[in-house]
Amino acid sequence: MRKYIALVAVMLLGVAVAGAASRKAVRINEVMVSNENSIVDEYGNRSGWVELFNSNFAPIDISSIFLGYGPDSASMRNNLYPVPLGDVNTRIPRRQHVVFFTDGQPNKGTFHTNFVMEPGNFIGIFDADSSLIDYVQIDANLQTNQSYARTVDGAGVFRIRTGSDMEGQYITPSSANIIRDTNERIALFAERDKNGFAMTLMAMGVVFTALLVLCLSFYGIGKIGAAVSRMNKARANASDGAATVALSDVEHDSGEEIAAIVMALHEHLNAHDTENTILTINKVKRAYSPWSSKIYGLRQVPEHHSAR
C-alpha cells in the first residue's frame, strides 16, 4: 500500500512540477509605451501595450499570474496586476501571443492593466507564488509609436523598433516578431541543394551511423552475453564435478547441429533419454495486482433475506 501511495505522490509531484514549469515559459515579447497609430483596444481607444509570448510547445493558462510594473526591479512587486481567473482568453496557444493594454483601467476587462507605462521603467511577469518569471527594463529613449521588442520571439535581446518598412523594424502586436513568408530551412535547401545530393549524403550518413552504432552495440552485447553464458556453464560444470570444459572451445550449438546429433543417436543407437519419473510440483507465485484482481471485476452476490 505504501508503495502505491509513494507512486501516486511522485506522479502528483511530477504533474505539479510540469504545470509550474510550463508557466515559466511565458515571456515579455514586445512593449509599446506611447501609442498613437498602433492597435486599438475593443473600445476603439489607443494606449500602450505589452505583448506576452508562450515560448512553450503546449498551451499555457496565464490566469492568476501577475504583471508587475515599477521604476526599478524591486518596486515591480508593489504594483501588481493580477490576470483574472475564469477568462477563456487567458489560455495562450503554443508559440502564440497575447496583448495587454497598459491603460490603467482594469475595469475595462481582463486585458487592461492597472498601470500606465513610462520609458525607462521596469515591467515583469510574476507567477502565482510571486516568483519572477521574466522582466525587462524599457529603453529610456523609446518614443511614441516605437516598440521595444525581442529580436526573436521569446528569446534574443530587446531592440527599439521604429515601425518603418525596413526588415526588423516592424511593430508586431499579437504576431511573431520576425515575419516569415517562407520556411528558411526549405528555402535554403531549395537554393543550395538543387539536386538533393547534399541531403542524400547527410541523411544516408545519419541512417548508416544510427544503424551501425546499433549493430556494433549488439555485437558487443552478444559477445558479453556469450561470455556470461560460458562462465555460467563452466561454473555449473565445476559445481557438478563434471569434466572441465575449456572455455574457448564452447560455442553456441546451432539448431541444425543439435537436430543432427539427435537424429544420429536415434538412428544408430536407438537411444532414448531416461526420465527420472519424479514429478515435481512447484507453487506458482504471482505478484498481487489490483489491475488483474477478480474481486474488483465481479459483483458481490446479493444476500437473500426472506421477509417474514
Partner: peptide, 18 residues
C-alpha cells in the same frame, strides 16, 4: 547485427526518389 546495414542501404530508395 550486420544485417542492419542492409536495412540502412535500402533507404537509399528514399533519397534517390528525393
Amino acid at each position: 547485427p550486420k544485417l542492419m546495414l542492409i536495412g540502412a542501404a535500402a533507404q537509399f530508395g528514399i533519397f534517390g526518389a528525393y
